[in-house]
Simulated scan of single mutants.
Amino acid sequence: MAKQFPELDSAQRKFIEDQHMFFVGTAGPEGRVNISPKGMDSLRVLGPNRIVWMNLTGSGNETAGHLLETNRMTLMWCSFTTRPLILRTYGTARTSHVGDAGWQKLEALFPDHRSARQIYDLDIDLVQTSCGYAVPFMEYQSERDTMQKWVDGKSDDDIQAYWVERNHQTIDGKPTRANDKPTNAEHLS
């Protein structure tokens, strides 16, 4: 049975920190709903009602486009190990793009990622847990090195060109700000 809480408690924070993957869900006022898996060392719980996560370059950029229209966001974690649990955080998010005021302070919370496009700052208004009894057991093996190999094979200009070519609009044709020129050039170096 689902239980709801106004904020994350210490056990829930520990559960989040122990997971290797999380899912983000966003949607604009119309168009498609997006659910995307995220991994790597890209998420920080900063308090009982605040989570920030760094969005790395990918094939799409739906979250950025959706948040330009509506700031709703849901994050979800599933236990694939011994304890069956699903945890969701609901709230409103702000987007920080490379070069925005406050980018460097948020970026410093994470390992250096040359392909970081945005950092999302989620203000949690509801936490929900549910059983997860139907979630299968799965074993974590390791992080994939595919993203890092891709980044290592690109120049900073190549990465920005990719953002303009592949990440400047959502699949519904909405803007994402990925084609904005960074004002903080040292981010990519």
Rank of each mutant, 00 (worst) to 15 (best):
A161L: 13
G47K: 14
G173C: 07
S142G: 07
G173W: 07
E143Q: 12
A27Y: 00
D158E: 10
E7I: 01
L106V: 04
T63F: 02
A116L: 03
G31H: 01
A134C: 10
N55L: 00
H66D: 14
K154C: 15
D172C: 05
E17Y: 02
N55T: 05
R144P: 05
G60I: 08
Q19H: 01
Q148S: 15
L126A: 15
V164D: 14
V24E: 00
M76P: 03
D112N: 09
R44D: 12
A93W: 09
P37N: 04
Q118H: 13
I119Y: 02
S10H: 05
P29T: 07
N179G: 10
C78M: 12
D121M: 05
A178N: 08
D180H: 12
F137V: 13
H187W: 08
Q4P: 01
D41H: 14
F22Q: 04
V98L: 03
H97D: 00
T82R: 10
N49A: 13
L43Y: 06
L43K: 01
Q169K: 06
V24K: 00
R44E: 10
A93D: 08
T129Q: 15
G102P: 00
V164P: 01
R114E: 09
F5A: 11
E143A: 13
N55E: 07
F110A: 14
W163R: 13
L8Y: 01
L46P: 09
P37V: 04
R88C: 08
W53N: 08
D100A: 00
G28I: 02
Y162T: 10
L85V: 11
V127W: 14
T170D: 07
V33I: 09
Q160K: 09
Q19S: 02
H113L: 10
M21H: 01
S142W: 05
P111L: 14
E107G: 00
H20N: 01
G102A: 00
N71K: 10
E139F: 04
D172N: 04
S155G: 15
R13H: 03
G31R: 02
N167Y: 01
D152V: 08
L56R: 08
I35T: 07
A178M: 11
E165C: 05
Y133R: 06
L56Y: 05
D156P: 10
D125Y: 15
H168V: 04
W150L: 08
V127T: 14
N184K: 02
F5N: 13
I124N: 06
K3A: 15
G91Q: 13
A64S: 12
D156H: 09
E69F: 06
T170A: 07
V127P: 02
S79N: 10
I35N: 07
Y162A: 11
I86E: 03
V164C: 08
A116K: 02
V45A: 11
